[in-house]
Each structure stands twice: as C-alpha cells, then as structure tokens.
C-alpha cells in the first residue's frame, strides 16, 4: 500500500516535471520571439511567438483550405506508401525465400538503395507526366527500401526449427509460407512499415515544397514565400502531428495483427 502510493506519487511528480519541461520550452520561445532575441548565429527576429501561431492555427482550422491541403497530402501518402507496402512485402518475400529471385532482384535494388529518395525529385519530375505522379513516386521510393529490407530480414530469419516442425506436422509449402513464414516475419515487416511511413512523410513534404500545388508541405513553403511566418510553424506542427498519428496507427496495427506479442491473460 505504502509502495503503491509512493510510486504513484513519484509518477505524478515525474509527470509534472515532464509537462513543466514542455511549458518551459514554450515560455522560452514566447520570450525569445517577443524580445527578438539575437544569439549571433541564430536569431529569433523573424520567429512569430506561440500566441501568434495559435491564432493562425485557429484561422487555418476554420478555413476550407486545410481540408484541401491535408486531403492532397494524405492522398499522395496513401497512394505512394500503399504501393510501396504491397510491392515491398512481395519483393521481400520473393528475395527472402528464393535464391533465384534474390539473384535477379537484389542487385538492382542494392544499387538504387544508397540514393536518398529526395535526390529522385528532379528526375521524377522529368519522368512523370504530372507533378502529382512524381510526388507519389517520391513517397513510394522513400518507403520502398525500408519495407523490402525489413521483410527480407524477417523472412530469412524465421526460426528454421519452426519450419521443420511444421513440415513434420504435414504442412505443405504454401501452408508453411502462410502459417509460419508470414507470422514469423510479421514483427520485422511491421518495423519496416513503420520506418517506411516516417520516410514517406519526410519525402512527401520535401517533394511538395518543390513541386506541389496543394498539400501541407506546399502550404508551409508557400507561407514562407508569402511571409506568413506564423503559418510556417502551423504547417510544421500539422506535419508533425500527422507523422505522429501515422506511426501510432502502425503501432496499433502491430498490436492488432500480432496479439501474441503482448498477450492479455496473466501467466
């Protein structure tokens, strides 16, 4: 009882410190921007204070522009990331399970892998008929490699004794792929999907800044060119929020698809 309240009290205490830390950062931001603090190498002269950002955020939330921007960003991510997830898992399975497929598919992938997705932007603008497609392509490229590599890793590292057991229990090749290799590789695949989601957002925002017409990255960059400095930070916050939301979505997906990793019943 004493320990419970003791640790409970400690828990509340730590929470207070953590929240206080965030509040202190915001307070510093407010003070630095209103005082137009200049530290020599970095200046807060053009940084709008949090109160102003909050006002801009409220304005954006009420304007129909928000839905248009978010809609086009989400549409691109879903398209590019969706194709990358599907293709990445298929490629990863083929490469991880078959030596022939690995010999054919892996060398070109390994050659392309070191090129950062954003380096593809100019070429993709040239290659695709619309800037929409080129942006989708960038999010696709960004997500593809982490998904492929983590799937290969997961498929190749499925415990061989589990496969041996399944074969001894009468499992066919197809059944082993579905019943053993897929769930065995699932944790690694979900890790790849989560990393891919992060890079996908990163690439999308960059691509939108360069060639977009709508989208949250475009909104952020447009605010800069129009000198709506508060809107820049609003854009940044929205991007961060959606990045957080999508990674939460994947963690939840992981828990739903792999209940054995966090069983609810006590031992």
């Amino acid at each position: 009882m004493a320990t419970a309240t003791g640790s409970g009290g400690m828990h509340v205490g730590r929470l207070l410190v953590q929240v206080g830390s965030i509040l202190a950062c915001i307070a510093f931001w407010q003070v630095a921007s209103t005082l137009r603090l200049n530290l020599g190498i970095v200046t807060f002269r053009n940084v709008p204070p949090p109160t102003e950002v909050l006002q801009s955020l409220i304005v954006l939330l009420q304007s129909p522009k928000l839905l248009a921007h978010l809609g086009s960003s989400l549409g691109r991510v879903f398209a590019g990331y969706g194709v990358a997830a599907l293709l990445g898992i298929l490629l990863g399975f083929a490469i991880g399970r078959s030596r022939a497929a690995s010999d054919v598919l892996l060398p070109p992938l390994e050659l392309l892998r070191p090129i950062p997705a954003v380096a593809w932007i100019p070429l993709s603008i040239l290659m695709f008929p619309s800037s929409e497609l080129s942006m989708i392509f960038i999010t696709f490229i960004g997500a593809l490699f982490p998904i492929v590599l983590n799937t290969i890793h997961g498929v190749a590292n499925v415990d061989r004794r589990l496969v041996a057991s399944a074969r001894s229990l009468g499992g066919s090749r197809a059944a082993i792929l579905w019943e053993i290799v897929l769930p065995g590789a699932a944790p690694s695949i979900v890790t790849g999907l989560a990393i891919g989601m992060g890079t996908s957002w990163f690439c999308l925002v960059t691509a939108e800044m360069i060639s977009g017409q709508f989208g949250i990255g475009y909104y952020t960059w447009e605010s800069y060119t129009l000198q709506n400095y508060a809107d820049i930070i609003v854009g940044m916050l929205v991007i961060g929020l959606f990045g957080m939301g999508s990674s939460w979505l994947l963690t939840t997906l992981g828990h739903v698809l792999m209940p054995w990793r966090s069983p609810m019943v006590a031992r």
């Binding site: 415990d159 041996a164 057991s165 399944a166 074969r167 229990l169 053993i180 769930p183 054995w260």
Partner: peptide, 28 residues
C-alpha cells in the same frame, strides 16, 4: 522427407508463438 507419420518433438521453443495452444495442437 518429413511426414506426420513420424512426429518429432524438439528440446524447446518450437510451438508456433502466434497460435494459441489449441490452434498449435490443431495444426496437423
């Protein structure tokens, strides 16, 4: 080759972790 006619039990950790106990036993 392997056959369910010749069942094998290993030292440990060869149950399918993603299947509940009943589904593990049901596999064959």
């Amino acid at each position: 080759g392997p056959s369910p006619d010749r069942g094998i039990v290993f030292q440990q950790h060869t149950l399918f972790p993603w299947k509940k106990v009943r589904e593990n036993v049901c596999f064959g």
